[in-house]
C-alpha cells in the first residue's frame, strides 16, 4: 500500500492505496466523494473527469499514486444548490441533461474551457465536449448550454 496526499477541493486528505488503484476509485471510495462517476473505465466516456492541478483528466486513466501531492477539483466543488456555477446554471436552463450520468464530467470539462479561455470559439466548444459522451440528451442542447455559459461569463466579466 502507498500513502498519498491529495488536496481535494481545498481540503488536505491522506489516503492509503494499492499502486494499481485508479484515481476515480480513490476519489469515490477513499475520499468519499461520489459525484465523480464511473462509466467505461477505458478513457472513452469522460464521466470520471476531474481537474488535477487545473487540468481536466479522465480519472479512470490515472493511477491514484500518480496524483500524490496534487490539487484535485471535483464536481462537489463547483457550486451549491443556492449558488450554482454559471456552467451549472446554463446546463439547467438549456435542458442540457436528462439522466445526468455524464453531467459531472461535462460540467468540469466546460469549467476548464472557460477558465482557460473566457471567450472560446465554436470549434473550441465542440472540441471541449468531444471527450464526454452523453447517451440521452443529444449534443444540440449541450452545445447551446456551453454557448450560454460563455455569454454569461463574458457579461459577468464586462466592467
Amino acid at each position: 500500500m502507498n500513502r498519498i496526499r491529495l488536496n481535494v477541493n481545498g481540503e488536505d486528505r491522506e489516503v492509503e492505496v494499492d499502486p494499481r488503484r485508479l484515481l476515480v476509485h480513490a476519489v469515490r471510495e477513499e475520499v468519499g466523494l461520489t459525484g465523480t462517476h464511473v462509466g467505461c473505465l477505458t478513457g472513452d466516456c469522460g464521466a470520471c473527469t476531474v481537474l488535477v492541478d487545473d487540468r481536466s483528466v479522465k480519472s479512470c486513466s490515472v493511477l491514484a499514486v500518480s496524483a500524490d501531492g496534487a490539487r484535485l477539483r471535483t464536481i462537489e466543488d463547483l457550486g451549491t444548490e443556492d449558488d450554482l456555477d454559471p456552467v451549472q446554471r446554463a446546463f439547467l436552463e438549456e435542458f442540457a441533461f436528462q439522466c445526468g450520468y455524464c453531467l459531472p464530467g461535462m460540467l468540469l470539462t466546460v469549467r476548464e474551457l472557460l477558465d482557460r479561455d473566457p471567450d472560446p470559439g465554436e470549434e473550441d466548444i465542440v472540441q471541449a465536449v468531444s471527450g464526454n459522451l452523453c447517451r440521452c440528451t443529444g449534443y444540440g442542447p449541450i452545445l447551446r448550454a456551453v454557448r450560454s455559459a460563455v455569454r454569461a461569463t463574458r457579461e459577468a466579466d464586462r466592467p
Binding site: G46, K58, T109, G131
Partner: peptide
C-alpha cells in the same frame, strides 16, 4: 487527437 481535452492534457 480525439478523446477530448482530457486526453490531450495527459
Amino acid at each position: 487527437i480525439t478523446g477530448g481535452p482530457q486526453i490531450r492534457n495527459r
